[in-house]
Design a protein around this nucleic acid. Structure first.
Lengths: 210, 210
DNA sequence: GGCGGCTTGTGAAAACCTTCACAAGAAACC
DNA sequence: GGTTTCTTGTGAAGGTTTTCACAAGCCGCC
């Protein structure tokens, strides 16, 4: 199979998000209409979709519900995914209460923390288990994706333990580099790093950039 | 000035993060040593740096403290930045308590919320003000960057108000498309979208991809 | 049924980004 | 001083992604 670039996948997710927002309001959508709010171009939209097949009708556009189904299939979202949150500090707690996850197909089925005060309780209906039981509980509950919301110094070890327990994908909020853990897929979200993208833009704009 | 790609800026931030982690342990570092933990290559590191000048010494490598200074200058981090958090729900509260921001040069100088229970109080020493006073307070306190942690439906309006108040960059956790608001710089962090990147990888790996 | 207005799908071209490969400089050692 | 070893900086090559431009197909209308 042809290799799909990360940016293409990102755009497909974006198209899907937009389509879900307009589902019901509109039966058909053109590549142009889809491109504009996602900051893309109509040619880009068509190219992205053509990587996977032909889903539109010439002269008409794309059927919104069909395109939603297609994108969900492409992105692996025809089914729900079982997620564990590791670290129930402020960020972890916010994640446990975040509606956006379940709305978009991700069920947080368990959380882990080291704090014995928290272990055994639940938050938003989600059990908080001890990190010591991680491996067992992950297997028992069929966790497929881990979200790391621990302090950075613990992240590395947690990722290893998740890998051992059979988790195949991890999203980390800890700003550390997690190396290549083939076949595990790892992605890091670093708030400060994103902000630095902004300060770079602001600073270079101020220094006589075009 | 030459255009710098977004991925190059991201890598520069990453190099800086790594360098800060080893500052003190090591005086010199080679492009190879810098590349490996950041998942890059030595040639890439040298190319990235060469976009801005010559900072190394042939046969030796790069001086760690000098390179840190250089990268901070490039990214606009020789000074601290004044940030406002809009929306003090669970995520907003987590942000107000997040050490990683101030460690990396970002001071949260004020927060905003609509909830009259919260307005007037403070959290982690940060005043929570009414959204109605946003424009005035943003100006008074010289806010330069806004972080949006409100429900999605409010995000659009908040961004406009921040723009009117003179804020030039926004990072949004609300998963909405914020259009092109030149000259404002806007970036969105969407948790579900990142997870979708993972599910795409998992799903296409399972379907006989190489 | 034929024409005109739209919109897709897609090769080809252009732009952009990464990797290669090597000259040039620095240090250590004999 | 000369030789060896190391590492940068950088043109050139190679690869990937985006944009362009247009044929092919759909629809409505006369």
């Amino acid at each position: 199979m042809k290799k799909i670039s990360e940016s293409a996948v990102r755009r497909l997710s974006l198209y899907l998000r937009l389509l879900r927002g307009i589902a019901g309001d509109q039966e058909l959508i053109s590549s142009q209409e889809l491109a504009e709010p996602s900051g893309s171009t109509s040619a880009q939209v068509r190219k992205d979709l053509s990587l996977f097949g032909s889903f539109g009708q010439r002269g008409k556009g794309y059927s919104v519900p069909e395109l939603i189904d297609t994108l969900e299939r492409i992105l692996g979202l025809e089914r729900r995914w079982r997620v564990a949150v590791v670290g129930v500090g402020k960020l972890g707690s916010a994640l446990l209460g975040y509606r956006g996850l379940s709305e978009r197909g991700f069920d947080v089925v368990v959380a882990f923390d080291v704090d014995t005060e928290k272990v055994g309780t639940e938050l938003n209906g989600i059990d908080i288990c001890s990190i010591d039981s991680l491996s067992r509980v992950v297997r028992e509950r069929g966790v497929e994706i881990g979200i790391i919301a621990t302090p950075p110094e613990e992240a590395e070890g947690i990722v290893s333990r998740l890998a051992d327990a059979g988790v195949s994908a991890v999203l980390s909020f800890a700003p550390i580099e997690l190396g290549n853990r083939d076949p595990m897929v790892v992605r890091t979200m670093d708030l400060a790093l994103e902000l630095e993208g902004l300060t770079f833009a602001l600073t270079s704009a101020r220094n006589g950039d075009s």
